[in-house]
Design a protein around this nucleic acid. Structure first.
Lengths: 355, 355
DNA sequence: CTTTATTTTGAGACCGGTCTCATTGAAAGA
DNA sequence: TCTTTCAATGAGACCGGTCTCAAAATAAAG
C-alpha cells in the first residue's frame, strides 16, 4: 500500500530514513558520514539509499556547513593558452582536494571582473583565484577580507593589497631579454603588449593596469636607459585603440620608416601577430627583425625561425596558487606570501645581430 | 545602544529587516525583487541593505527556488585550444543569460567524466554541456533524464541517446581531405589521432570511444577504400601506448621505411607534434610529406609551410550548445535536436603531390 | 539485579532565503 | 458613517541538509 515514488523530484534523507525505518538524524549521519552509527543501521540505510537512488544535495549541505567546496577562478581570457594552462593546473589541484571551480573571464575589463567576483561571492565560494585586470582598482578584492573568502592573486600583484600572490620575475626577465637584444647590437627596440593604456601617473609615466605588463615595461625601459638608448628608440606599444585591436598598432609599428630591429612581445598572442605581420611584409626574421616572446607557447618551436622565449612556469604558478588557497581555507594564518617565480629564457633562432 | 555588527559573519535579510523596521517577509520581497511593496518601504530597506552591506546568499536562494543558475561544462582538456575556444563561447552565452559555469576536465577518461558529472549533479546544476569521452559508456548521462537536469552533448554524439547534440560533419570533412590527398597523387596515407583504442567491435573494426574521431576515421577509410588504396597504405594511428604518449606513435610512423606521404591529423595538437617530428627528421614539407589538420589553430598560418586545415566552427558550436541548453532549461519540449555544422577546408601550403 | 557509564538513536532547531496565506489599513463605494 | 475592496505587510512553513542535546538502549561495574 506504499505510495510508489516514481516522481523525478529528488530523494531526500527524510525519504531514505522513512524507507530504512530510522530517524532523519540517523539516516543523515550515515549518509553524511559523520557522528556515530551502528553497523546494522549503516547497512540498512545504505541499502535504502541505493534502492531510492539517493543523491545528496550539495547545496543544502553547503547551506548548513557554510562550506561550498567551490572556488571561483577569474582570468583574462581562457582562450589564451597562458590562462588555459593556468586554469588546468589550478583545477587539477583543486579537484584533487575536493573543490570545484567556477570559471569567469574578465576580458581584462575591470567592470566585468568586479561583477564576476561579486557573483562568485554571492555563490558562497570558499575562495577565489584572480588575475586582476587592474592594479589600481581593488575595492572589490579588499571587500573579500571582510567576508570569509580566501583570495590568491595570480600572475599580477596589487601593491596595496597584503594578500597571497604568485607572480614571475617580469622585470628581471624583460631586462635580461632587452639586454640580450642590446648585446647583439640592437639600438631600436620595442616592447609590444595588448594591454590598453590606463592614463598617466603623476610623474608622467603611463599607468599600466596589468601589473605584470607594467613590470615588464619597467624592466625593458630600465635596460634601454642603462644602455643609453634614446627614448624614441625604446618604444612601448600598447593597444591604443581597442576598436582597431592590436593588429593596427603592430601594423603601424612595422610600417614606420625607422622600425625597430628587435621586439619584445608581452605574450604569445602578441608574438604570433607580429610573426604574421612580419611574414606578410616579407620582413626577414631574424635578420631584419629579432623577436623574443613571453610564454613558451607550443607553436614557438615550429616556426621558421623558431622563437626565443621567456619561459614562464605557468603550471607551477597555477599549482602554487591553488595550494596556497587551500591552506588559507584550511585556516592558515601565516602572513601573506608574495611568491616570485623565476623565468628562464629559452634561446632559439629569432634573435641575431641587426643587419 | 544598538549592538554594532562588525562581525565578519554574513548579513541576512532578517538583519536588514530588523534595521529597516519591517518584517523579514517584506525585506525579502524588496531584496529579492518579487511580490509587491510600497515605495517608502523599498527605499528604507535598500538603505538598510546598503548600510549593512547586505549580500544575498545565492545558495540559500537556489535552495528554495530549485534553480542554481549554474551549468556544468565537461570537456576533455581545457588546455587544448579547441576546448579553450569552446568553453569561452559557452561561458559568454551563459553568463550573458545569468548562468555561471563550473568547469571540469575529463582528460578523455570515462571514469573521471562520470565522477565529474555526478559531482555537478550533486551541486544541483541546472544543466550540463558535455563532450563525452566515450560513446559506449552512457549510463551517467542517461541518468540525467530522471533528474531535472538538461544536457547538451558537444562535438560528440552518443548514438543511443536522444538528446540535443551539436557536432560537425566529421566524416565528410575527413573524406574530402583524404580525397584531396588522393587527387594530388598520394597512395600511402595515414590518419593520426591521440585517441586511445577502445578494443574491437564484433565486425573486427576498432572501437573508437571518441565519436568525432570515429567518424573522421570512417570518412578517411571510406575515401581510401573508394580509391582502391590498400589497407596497409591507409593507416590509422591511435595512441596505442598511453604511457609513451602520442609522440612515440608518430615516431614509429615517420621512421618506418615506407612512411606515408600524406597525413591527416585529427586535431591541432597532433598536427603540431607531427610538424615537430618532421622538422627534426628533416622531412621536407610539403614535398616529402603533406599534412592536413583538423582545427584552424592560430599557429597554422605562421609555419613554413603554412598548414592546410579543416576549419571547425568551434565558437558557433559552443554558442549553439549554450543557447540550446538555455532553451531546455526554460522548458522547451521540442524533440531533441542533432545539429551538424559544416566544416570547410582552408587551403594553405602543406599539401602537394608526392615527389 | 541494580546502578552507572557508554554507545546509539531521535526530536527539533537552524542555515538564509522564498512563498503562501492571513491580517492590516486605507481608499472607494453605498 | 459603514461596508467593500484591494494594496501592503507580517507570521510562519518550507527547501534538504547539519548539528545539538536529550532520551533510549546497551554494556560494564558493583
Amino acid at each position: 500500500m506504499k505510495k510508489t515514488n516514481l516522481q523525478s523530484s529528488s530523494v531526500t534523507v527524510a525519504d531514505v530514513a522513512r524507507h530504512a525505518n530510522v530517524s532523519k538524524s540517523t539516516a543523515a549521519r550515515v549518509l553524511g558520514g559523520y557522528g556515530v552509527t551502528s553497523e546494522k543501521v549503516r547497512e540498512r540505510v545504505h541499502a535504502s539509499a541505493k534502492a531510492l537512488k539517493y543523491r545528496a544535495n550539495e547545496l543544502a549541505r553547503s547551506m548548513t556547513t557554510g562550506k561550498s567546496k567551490t572556488i571561483g577562478v577569474v582570468v583574462g581570457d581562457i582562450e589564451n593558452s597562458f590562462f588555459g594552462i593556468a586554469v588546468r593546473s589550478i583545477t587539477d589541484v583543486l579537484n584533487a582536494n575536493g573543490f570545484n571551480v567556477i570559471l569567469a573571464n574578465s576580458d581584462e575589463n575591470f567592470d566585468v571582473e568586479r561583477d564576476a567576483v561579486n557573483v562568485l561571492v554571492g555563490k558562497q565560494v570558499d575562495g577565489l583565484i584572480v588575475a586582476p585586470a587592474n592594479r589600481y582598482e581593488t575595492a572589490h578584492l579588499e571587500n573579500l577580507k571582510t567576508l570569509n573568502c580566501a583570495v590568491v592573486l595570480f600572475d599580477r600583484e596589487i601593491p596595496s593589497m597584503d594578500v597571497d600572490t604568485v607572480i614571475s620575475d617580469d622585470a628581471d626577465a624583460a631586462r635580461n631579454a632587452t639586454e640580450a637584444f642590446i648585446a647583439a647590437g640592437h639600438r631600436r627596440l620595442a616592447f609590444v603588449t595588448a594591454t590598453i593604456e590606463g592614463g598617466r601617473e603623476d610623474n608622467g609615466k603611463w599607468r599600466i593596469p596589468t601589473s605584470s605588463v607594467g613590470r615588464r615595461i619597467d624592466g625593458f625601459l630600465s635596460a634601454c636607459k642603462e644602455a643609453g638608448i634614446a627614448e624614441e628608440n625604446s618604444l612601448v606599444v600598447l593597444n591604443s585603440d581597442p576598436d582597431l585591436g592590436l593588429g593596427a598598432s603592430i601594423s603601424k609599428l612595422l610600417d614606420q620608416p625607422e622600425r625597430p630591429t628587435a621586439i619584445l612581445a608581452s605574450d604569445s598572442i602578441v608574438a604570433l601577430e607580429i610573426f604574421k605581420q612580419a611574414q606578410k611584409r616579407d620582413i626577414e626574421m631574424p635578420d631584419a627583425l629579432s623577436l623574443i616572446a613571453f610564454h613558451n607557447a607550443d607553436w614557438t618551436e615550429v616556426t621558421r625561425p623558431t622563437v626565443t622565449v621567456i619561459d614562464q612556469p605557468v603550471s607551477e604558478m597555477g599549482r602554487w596558487s591553488a595550494e596556497q588557497l587551500i591552506k588559507r581555507i584550511e585556516g592558515s594564518a601565516e602572513p601573506a606570501l608574495h611568491h616570485v617565480m623565476k623565468m628562464k629564457v629559452i634561446n632559439r633562432q629569432s634573435v641575431t645581430s641587426p643587419k
